[in-house]
């Protein structure tokens, strides 16, 4: 399932490149939506609507895919969201823009960024495990 889902992700970012010549980077697309970049926000808005419609479809046909059994408390979730929002804009990308599109282009920046966020993710989970009572899942 992970491989099949990954291939579908690869296919969808390929359609974006073929049709609109764009990198499918979710963090950049959402950031440029809020700053209304160059009036070119319509396709970005539709992309986000597509994401949400995909989520609605998952909810109806594969509800298990949206289970969130990480019991963190909303404070920790909010902190995570702030760091992800700020960090992805500062670092020019997230898992989609750097991790999928950038690595596929063999971009040194994206390879470096991806290794960095995976390493910091691993370290964070290890620290949370060791000092903050662990993760519940």
């Amino acid at each position: 399932m992970a491989l099949a889902g990954g291939m579908l992700i690869g296919l969808s970012v390929t359609i974006m490149l073929l049709a609109l010549g764009r990198v499918t980077g979710v963090s950049g697309i959402t950031y440029k939506l809020i700053i209304r970049d160059k009036g070119d926000w319509v396709w970005r808005g539709f992309f986000v609507v597509g994401l949400v419609l995909g989520g609605v479809t998952l909810r109806f046909f594969y509800a298990d895919s949206l289970i969130n059994s990480v019991d963190h408390g909303l404070g920790r979730i909010a902190l995570a969201g702030l760091l992800v929002g700020f960090g992805t804009v500062l670092g020019n990308g997230c898992t989609s823009g750097h991790g999928v599109c950038g690595i596929s282009r063999f971009s040194l920046r994206s390879i470096t960024a991806t290794l960095t966020f995976i390493c910091f993710g691993i370290a964070t989970v290890a620290i949370v495990d060791a000092f903050l009572g662990g993760v519940v899942y």
Binding site: V52, V84, F86, T116, G121, T124
Partner: peptide, 26 residues
């Protein structure tokens, strides 16, 4: 900025388990 941004993102990803696309999809 690339390195610091990616590091902050990684910390947030590790804390919450969400990155931007999956969070919006959810």
């Amino acid at each position: 900025s690339l390195l610091v941004g990616a590091a902050l993102f990684g910390i947030g990803w590790g804390i919450g388990g969400f990155c931007p696309g999956p969070a919006i999809t959810s």
